[in-house]
Computed example of a mutant assay.
Amino acid sequence: MAARTQLQLGTDLQRTDDFTAALGHLTAAADTFQSLPDHRQHAAALLQLGRLARRQGHTDKAVLHLREAATLPTCYPADHAQTAAVLLELSETSFEQRDHVEGVEHVGRRARRCAGTARVGDGRGG
């Protein structure tokens, strides 16, 4: 089955709460996109894996998937709407983990990088 079909099927199954089947399809899609490499689609699959893990209450796994998805556009141009979705999901997951400070700092740094700005004196540049 083609990776894009796997991604769409996994996303649809997640919406119907068929988490086991969704996980299989999303994992297969992420692995395929990583090996191609198709970084934009890989980030999309990781976003869906993060959402799935979050819905299942596995916030630690969700954060791992979402952070990986958030770092792909740093090296490879990606869709800004997708990047925003990843950052929003990561932020909400961090709050659920009661990891407010780290979540806010990570999202703030990433958002500033996307916008090409930085806080004065933070040493990170744009």
Rank of each mutant, 00 (worst) to 15 (best):
G57R: 13
R67M: 09
L9G: 01
F33A: 02
L26I: 04
G57H: 15
D38L: 13
A43I: 01
T11A: 15
L36Q: 14
L23F: 11
D38P: 03
L49T: 13
D38C: 10
L47C: 11
A21Q: 08
V63K: 12
R15D: 08
H65V: 05
L47P: 14
A43G: 07
D18K: 08
A21S: 09
P37S: 09
L49W: 10
H58N: 13
L7R: 05
A29F: 04
S35K: 14
D31C: 11
T27L: 15
G50K: 07
H25Q: 13
R67C: 15
A53R: 00
S35D: 12
G57P: 03
H65S: 11
D12I: 04
H39I: 00
R55S: 10
A30H: 00
A43W: 05
Q6T: 01
G57Q: 04
V63C: 13
A62L: 05
L26R: 01
D12M: 05
T11F: 14
A62G: 13
D17E: 15
T20S: 02
R15M: 08
V63G: 06
L66W: 07
L23G: 02
R67S: 12
T20R: 13
L66N: 09
V63R: 12
A53N: 07
H42Y: 06
H65F: 11
A43E: 00
L23M: 13
L26T: 00
L49Q: 09
H39L: 11
T11C: 13
D12V: 04
L64Q: 10
Q56Y: 14
L49F: 13
R15L: 02
K61V: 01
A21Y: 01
Q34I: 02
H58T: 01
T32Q: 15
F33Y: 05
D31N: 14
D60F: 14
L23Q: 05
T59N: 11
A45I: 15
D31R: 15
D60K: 14
T59V: 10
L36S: 08
T16P: 03
A62R: 06
R40E: 03
G57A: 10
A21N: 08
T59D: 03
Q56L: 06
H25W: 12
L52D: 03
L47E: 03
G24S: 10
L46N: 05
G24D: 10
T27C: 08
R40G: 13
P37A: 02
D31H: 15
T27P: 06
L46Q: 05
S35Y: 12
R55F: 03
L13S: 06
R67K: 15
A29V: 02
G10E: 00
L52N: 09
F33Q: 00
L26Q: 04
Q34L: 05
L36F: 08
R67L: 10
T59W: 06
F19R: 11
L47K: 09
G24V: 02
F19V: 14
D17P: 03
L36P: 02
D17I: 10
F19K: 04
R40S: 13
